[in-house]
Amino acid sequence: MKRANEQAVEGFFVLSAYFSALLTVALFGFMLVLGLPLFAEGRIFSIMAQPWAPHLGQFGIQPMIVGTLAISLLSMLFAFPLSLGCAVLISVVSKGKVSWLLRKTVEMMTGIPTVIYGFVGIFLLVPLVREFFAAGSGMCVLSASLMLTLLVSPTMILFFCESFARVPDSYGKAALAVGGTEVQKFLHVTLPNSWPGVVIGFTLALGRALGDTLIALMIAGNAVQTPGSLLDSARTLTSHIALVFAADYESPEFKAIFACGIFLYLFTTFLMMAVRLLGVGRERWAR
């Protein structure tokens, strides 16, 4: 009797694990099925390349793809040096209490809700950008990527710190023993030995930047156009999903949001695969 009970519980463990894995596939399957007509007859490529012009019967998501890439890549351009600098500050330059305090602050930053960044962005950053550049509404690619920088930096900083700490102590000691300074030790020993971790941190942060909805939705302006400059309004794939609400579930407008979903799914999956292929990902979970 007891054995049967145990088998039932263990059966539940197995089922749960495979259910959760299946869920990942089902998520993709649902979007594919509901967006299906879009992908018939090779229309998927025209969807990716066309502009969004409902009055002309064009429902391409090319402006949204460009908007997403512009905002996330620009934020990575700001965030990467910033995070590297902060990670160096925490791991190498500052010591003791200061280093601990900085680290805790960065960890705390991961707990700040995205909608808060968006909210403060509207009332603090957008007017600043508008005044400073004296152009447009201030709701633009630049504002969104500046706020996004704050969102993605903690992920990178913590990951960089961890990969610096993983470089064996003996390597660093050797550098110091031959008369190197702390800075030289970092530049010539720690950094070259931790680059896979740095690349992975960058990749994970890029995934967050691509996938974030609220910041772009609230402060990028959401105009459906291919942004021509940093001060142009833009719409990301994520905002497009959040904004399109067609009453008619069969309309091409509505189907196009599944193209956005599929694109985001494939892109983040691709990034996650890259992280795993770099190897350190597996090592991280096994620890």
Binding site: S20, G207, T213, T238, G261, T268
Partner: peptide, 25 residues
């Protein structure tokens, strides 16, 4: 390793995609 692959992908998905799944379901 096989299952971890799926959980990593699930963990990396943007929340709007999960929302879209809920909506399409």
């Amino acid at each position: 390793a096989f299952l971890n692959l799926f959980f990593d992908i699930l963990a990396g998905l943007p929340s709007i995609v999960v929302g879209l799944f809920g909506f399409s379901a």
